[in-house]
Amino acid sequence: MNPLLAILITLITFAFMEFWAWFMHKYVQHGPLWVLHSSHHVRPSPRPFERNDWFFVIYGALSTALFLTGNNGQHWWFWVGVGIAAYGTVYFFVHDGLIHGRLPFWKKTDSVYLRALNMAHKMHHKTQGRDHSEEFGLLWVSPKYLRLARQQAARKAH
């Protein structure tokens, strides 16, 4: 496969995964699959693994299947699998590692964007039930949280 096409498919898949994650989070995880996702809204989590972690396993299995059947990059769906795996990796480090502190080496950041992301996620967890949550995405941050994070950084700098 043409390397530029492979990169394009990977990037489009990665970008699509942000929309897909938002959609699934809002309408499926806070809907019919709340039985799995609810474990993520319990604070603090009593175990290192939550029922919610099954979503990571599902997307990992999908990505793996695309890799295994993609003939080492000869088929376009191999690169879809790469995009899904890349998004899952970013998701793990940002969401589980930074925001929820499941990786002890990454506790604080001075990044305005990551602080805004953290604020938005805290707003999502403000309600522990399945209804009335907001901010369902991972990487896209509402402008209001970016403004708040910039204001917070400016106050800290003075």
Rank of each mutant, 00 (worst) to 15 (best):
L5D: 02
I7D: 02
A21G: 10
N72Q: 14
A86F: 14
V35L: 08
M17I: 03
V57M: 11
H37G: 13
K26N: 10
L36T: 03
W77P: 01
W76Y: 12
N71Y: 06
H37T: 09
S39F: 01
W77E: 00
A86C: 15
W79Y: 09
F78I: 03
T64A: 10
G88D: 13
T64W: 12
G70E: 00
N52P: 07
W77C: 03
I84E: 09
G81H: 00
T64V: 14
L8P: 00
W79S: 09
Y59K: 04
W22L: 14
Y59S: 12
K26P: 06
V28K: 02
A61F: 07
D53W: 09
A61W: 13
L66V: 01
F16H: 07
G73R: 03
I58N: 04
P48Y: 14
T89Q: 03
G70H: 00
N71Q: 12
N71C: 04
T10P: 08
R43M: 15
I58W: 12
G73E: 01
L68A: 06
E50C: 12
R43T: 08
V28C: 08
Q29N: 03
T64S: 07
H75C: 02
A65C: 10
E50T: 15
S38M: 12
D53M: 11
L5K: 04
M17F: 11
F14D: 13
W20Q: 09
P44R: 07
S38A: 10
P32G: 08
V80D: 02
D53A: 07
L62W: 07
M17W: 09
S38N: 09
H37L: 08
P48F: 13
I58A: 10
F67R: 04
F56Q: 06
E18P: 04
E50K: 14
L68W: 02
T13Y: 11
G70D: 00
G81A: 01
V42F: 04
N72F: 11
W77A: 01
F14A: 05
W34M: 00
A85I: 00
I9G: 05
L68S: 01
L11A: 10
T13L: 09
L66A: 03
W77H: 14
I12M: 09
A61K: 10
N72R: 10
N71I: 03
G31H: 11
I84Y: 11
R43E: 15
F56N: 15
V57A: 09
F23I: 04
A85S: 13
W22T: 13
H75N: 15
G81T: 01
W77L: 03
L11W: 12
P46S: 15
W54K: 01
Q29K: 10
F49P: 06
F67W: 10
L36D: 08
I7T: 14
M17R: 08
A15T: 13
Q29G: 06
W76F: 15
I84F: 10
M17D: 11
H41Q: 05
P32N: 05
K26T: 06
A6M: 03
P32F: 10
P46V: 06
V35M: 02
I58C: 10
Y27P: 08
L8H: 01
W22I: 03
S63T: 08
L68N: 02
R43N: 06
P46K: 12
S39D: 08
W77I: 00
D53Q: 03
A21V: 11
F67Q: 07
L33E: 07
G70R: 00
A65M: 04
Y59E: 14
